[in-house]
Amino acid sequence: MKIPPGVRNADLWRKHCRRIRARALDLLEGRLGVIETARLMLPLAYWTKVQNEPEFLLFRAIASETDDLPVGDVRAHWAADALEREDVRIEAAEKLWREQALSAAEKLVERYQWTIARRHSSPDEE
């Protein structure tokens, strides 16, 4: 994969590319949910300049549609009764988006496979 124009720090770009693959694997292997994965993918897509690729447009849609739901660390700041109510909405959203998100994650794991295979290659080779 070629480093996009405008990227000034190739090492940081590669690090963010590795994180894209890692978050996609986290979703596929059940360590993260759909909503949390979508939220984590947004800054990575921006930093790697791939935010307009279809998989990241999907994750942006998921994050946008679920931005009011308490997912991840913010749950610690919510009351138990509110969490119980919102968990019904979270479960519905996770179910609604799961198939599409898993498909996108599979594509990203494959597309970013180079990040583990060629971790120390020069930017000109990517």
Results as ranks from 00 to 15, higher is better:
residue 47 W to R: 13
residue 77 H to S: 02
residue 44 L to N: 01
residue 85 R to V: 11
residue 63 A to T: 04
residue 102 L to R: 04
residue 100 Q to C: 03
residue 79 A to S: 11
residue 27 L to V: 05
residue 76 A to Q: 13
residue 80 A to R: 07
residue 77 H to K: 10
residue 75 R to F: 06
residue 64 S to V: 10
residue 43 P to Q: 14
residue 101 A to I: 05
residue 59 F to K: 05
residue 73 D to Y: 12
residue 50 V to C: 10
residue 43 P to W: 15
residue 88 V to E: 02
residue 61 A to V: 15
residue 17 C to R: 01
residue 74 V to P: 02
residue 95 K to W: 06
residue 41 M to L: 08
residue 70 P to L: 01
residue 31 R to F: 03
residue 100 Q to M: 03
residue 47 W to K: 10
residue 94 E to F: 00
residue 32 L to E: 07
residue 19 R to I: 11
residue 24 A to Q: 03
residue 21 R to A: 09
residue 22 A to C: 11
residue 68 D to L: 01
residue 41 M to S: 09
residue 101 A to F: 01
residue 28 L to C: 13
residue 20 I to R: 08
residue 36 E to K: 08
residue 17 C to M: 05
residue 29 E to F: 07
residue 91 E to Q: 02
residue 40 L to V: 03
residue 78 W to F: 01
residue 84 E to M: 04
residue 38 A to E: 08
residue 74 V to A: 06
residue 56 F to Q: 07
residue 66 T to K: 09
residue 96 L to Y: 07
residue 36 E to T: 12
residue 55 E to I: 07
residue 54 P to Y: 06
residue 33 G to K: 00
residue 55 E to C: 07
residue 49 K to F: 06
residue 17 C to W: 02
residue 18 R to T: 13
residue 76 A to W: 05
residue 43 P to L: 14
residue 49 K to V: 07
residue 79 A to P: 09
residue 84 E to S: 05
residue 42 L to W: 03
residue 19 R to E: 09
residue 83 L to D: 06
residue 70 P to V: 03
residue 71 V to H: 02
residue 81 D to L: 15
residue 67 D to L: 12
residue 36 E to A: 14
residue 57 L to E: 14
residue 59 F to T: 12
residue 63 A to H: 03
residue 104 A to R: 04
residue 91 E to R: 02
residue 89 R to K: 15
residue 75 R to E: 06
residue 29 E to I: 10
residue 32 L to C: 13
residue 84 E to V: 12
residue 28 L to P: 03
residue 29 E to N: 05
residue 69 L to N: 11
residue 72 G to I: 05
residue 50 V to G: 05
residue 60 R to P: 03
residue 30 G to D: 13
residue 42 L to P: 03
residue 89 R to F: 09
residue 30 G to H: 13
residue 85 R to S: 13
residue 74 V to L: 04
residue 22 A to Y: 06
residue 50 V to I: 11
residue 51 Q to T: 09
residue 104 A to K: 01
residue 100 Q to T: 00
residue 35 I to D: 01
residue 33 G to A: 06
residue 54 P to M: 12
